[in-house]
């Protein structure tokens, strides 16, 4: 019994964080702490009942979706149009990485300006070069 109780507790905690409280507070179900919230107490009770009935995770969540609509899930599902929500940030990350590497290669391939002055640089030119080196290496 003790083991079963701990298991249900863990599942309650996991699923309770995958659901939103529908009172309009925009908080995850288990984090809604409004005193006298008309929804969270009832929804927690429904979740407990569902788990005690032996519903699996998917069935428990589905019963909430049927009762409260899609917005009861705290994150988009990974099916249908919603899959775009998950893919897009990583697709942008991948595309931006490729672009950055391409940019680095492009900038690397720019021609180097070759010094044409005589090796005996004047003090003014040396001062300029020193200033530039100082500026570039300061940070």
């Amino acid at each position: 019994m003790g083991f079963m109780g701990a298991d249900v507790d863990a599942r309650f905690n996991k699923l309770g964080h995958q659901l939103m409280c529908m009172c309009g507070c925009n908080q995850v179900l288990l984090e809604c702490n409004h005193v006298g919230c008309a929804y969270s107490e009832r929804m927690r009770g429904e979740l407990t009942a569902s788990l005690e009935r032996g519903d699996n995770d998917s069935l428990a969540l589905q019963s909430f979706v049927q009762k409260y609509g899609n917005t009861v899930l705290s994150a988009p599902t990974s099916s249908g149009f919603n899959v775009i929500a998950w893919i897009m940030p990583f697709a942008v990350f991948a595309a931006a990485s490729v672009l950055t590497v391409w940019l680095v290669r492009l900038w690397k391939s720019r021609p180097v300006a070759q010094p044409v002055a005589s090796p005996n640089l004047g003090s003014e030119q040396l001062d300029k070069l020193r200033k530039k080196a100082r500026q570039e290496t300061e940070f």
């Binding site: 899930l73 705290s74 988009p76 249908g80 149009f81 929500a85 940030p89």
Partner: peptide, 27 residues
Amino acid sequence: FAVLWGTLFPVLSEWVTGSKVTVGPPF
């Protein structure tokens, strides 16, 4: 971009599919 995308996705989803979704902390 990821934060902006997640914040606006409910609006986009409602516009495309007619059904609103929640994008909360797990996402």
